[in-house]
Structures are given as structure tokens and as C-alpha cells.
Computed example of a mutant assay.
Amino acid sequence: MLGKHGCHLCEEALEVIRRVSADTGAGYTVRYLEDASRQERDEYWERIPVTFVDGAPHDFWRVSERRLRAALD
């Protein structure tokens, strides 16, 4: 997940990611825009949180638990 410190949507997304990860055994990492490249900041600033599956953008703004589970199956 790519997010921003203090972002309530990012906190909600991370809760979903943690729950799905615990159930499926999938790993995850959290990165923050403050530490991202200028290109990533420019591309994703208005769309955080951004979830990625296998390195590809998967969801923006909100994480659908159903879609994330389906993508990890």
C-alpha cells in the first residue's frame, strides 16, 4: 500500500489489508508518499491510498475487501 501519514482513508485501507493478509497468508508492505519518488508522488498524490497486487495498482481511495481477496486467490 502507498499512503500518507495521518490519512484516515489510509488507516481504513490498512485495516482491510491486515485482515485479508492474516486470513490468506499474503504479505504486504506499507510505503508513504513522503518517502516516495517524485514520479510516484505526482502520479498517486490525489489517489491515496493505493493498493498494489504483484506490483500493479489494484485499488485507489478505498480498498474493497472482496476485490482484494479475489485478487489474492
Rank of each mutant, 00 (worst) to 15 (best):
C7T: 08
E11V: 12
E40L: 12
W61Q: 10
D35G: 10
P57I: 03
V63E: 00
T24W: 03
L33V: 02
G3Y: 00
R62K: 15
T51F: 05
G27R: 11
D42T: 09
Y28S: 09
T24G: 08
V63A: 03
G55P: 04
V63K: 00
E43D: 12
G25H: 05
F60G: 02
Y44F: 14
K4V: 11
D42R: 06
E65G: 15
L33N: 02
E46F: 11
H58W: 00
R38G: 07
V53G: 00
H5P: 00
E43W: 09
G55S: 06
G3M: 04
C10P: 07
V53T: 01
T51C: 12
V63M: 02
R41K: 13
D73Q: 15
G6N: 04
K4A: 15
S37E: 09
V16R: 01
R38Q: 12
W45R: 12
D42W: 02
Y32C: 00
G55F: 02
A71P: 02
A71I: 01
A56Y: 03
A36V: 08
R66T: 15
E12D: 14
F52E: 09
L33D: 01
L72W: 06
C7R: 06
E40S: 06
R66L: 15
D73M: 15
E43M: 07
